[in-house]
């Protein structure tokens, strides 16, 4: 464990809590892509199947449970409790365009052809594109609530911190997880234009609105 990974996990947890608080307090999920949240729940479900078979540490187990709970609670709030405020007409990204190629790729490119390993690989590839429906929705509506931009900032920051964690682990313990690193780079790149808008607009107190 290193400081980059801890900061990354904290940033990830903070993002999820920010989103939950936003929906819970405003009792509204307008502007939030339910499809992205479904993909995140799927990412954690397929990645944490080893929750009971592969004990890494108490921290690892506790965080996995918290992440799973947050993900499913968020999906429940969007499609269950506050579904009347969910603007599905703006959440139109075609998930099959992500799920089909990623499923194929996880069968082709993985560390070992076993169910758990293919599902883990699937979750890594899926996570790199899971935010696309949300970014697509923002580009479609042309704006995002400030709290939503903070959610996206910490969500993008977490995987950027994981890149630093992988560099650190490569130099200190010769650890190199190519599938995770390549996917993590792709995932972080998807946030770049958002990061630019976040820094130049939101941090200056302006509302995030796309040109």
């Amino acid at each position: 464990m290193n400081v980059f990974r801890i900061l990354g996990d904290v940033s990830h947890l903070l993002a999820m809590i920010l989103l939950l608080l936003k929906i819970w307090r405003s009792k509204c999920c307008t502007g939030i892509s339910g499809k992205s949240q479904i993909l995140f729940a799927l990412v954690f479900t397929t990645r944490y199947l080893d929750l009971f078979t592969n004990f890494v540490s108490l921290y690892n187990t506790v965080m996995k449970v918290i992440f799973l709970l947050c993900a499913y609670l968020t999906v429940y709030m969007i499609y269950g409790k506050f579904r009347k405020t969910f603007d599905s007409e703006n959440d139109t990204f075609r998930l099959e365009f992500l799920l089909v190629p990623i499923t194929g790729l996880s069968f082709l490119e993985n560390y070992s052809f076993t169910p758990l390993e293919i599902l883990w690989t699937f979750s890594i590839y899926l996570e790199s594109v899971a935010i696309l429906p949300q970014l697509f929705m923002i580009s479609k509506t042309g704006e995002a609530e400030t709290i939503t931009t903070h959610y996206l900032f910490f969500l993008g920051l977490y995987r950027a911190l994981y890149l630093a964690n992988w560099i650190w682990r490569y130099h200190t313990e010769n650890f190199y997880d190519q599938i995770a690193v390549v996917s993590g780079v792709v995932q972080t790149i998807f946030y770049c234009d958002f990061f630019y808008l976040y820094v130049t607009k939101v941090l200056k107190g302006k509302k995030l609105s796309l040109p």
Binding site: S57, N60, M63, K64, Y111, S112, W120, Y176, D177
Partner: peptide, 10 residues
Amino acid sequence: GPEPGRHDEL
């Protein structure tokens, strides 16, 4: 990569 099934990251 790490040996299969031994992923220690979240």
